[in-house]
């Protein structure tokens, strides 16, 4: 079980959180203008990297706030945590 540091509440066990999948997949502002291929890409296609992954987490059994996390999917080590709406850090602190 991961130990996740909620930016609002502090370190808590993973069981308090829900993972919301890959981060920075923006909803097209005008979905109606997007073709089927691009829409499918938004809905379903994911980077799924073996390595650093930016992902969304919700402190579901806590403050109910969403935030972003960088995690290495090969080692499961957490590399960084940052607020929703912030862009992915270029050089994550390790």
């Amino acid at each position: 079980m991961l130990l996740i540091t909620c930016p609002y509440c502090g370190a808590r066990p993973e069981s308090e959180f829900r993972c919301g999948g890959e981060a920075h997949i923006a909803r097209p502002p005008q979905p109606g203008n997007v073709d089927d291929t691009a829409w499918a890409d938004y809905l379903f296609y994911r980077t799924n990297p073996k390595g650093v992954h930016a992902e969304r987490w919700l402190h579901a059994h806590g403050c109910q706030r969403w935030f972003n996390m960088l995690r290495d999917t090969a080692s499961d080590q957490v590399i960084g945590i940052y607020a929703m709406g912030k862009s992915r850090p270029d050089r994550p602190k390790t």
């Binding site: 919301g20 969304r56 919700l58 579901a60 969403w66 929703m84 709406g85």
Partner: peptide, 13 residues
Amino acid sequence: LQHMEDYLQTEWP
């Protein structure tokens, strides 16, 4: 509720 919070916090903050 989670669906709502998701859109509220992440798409339409």
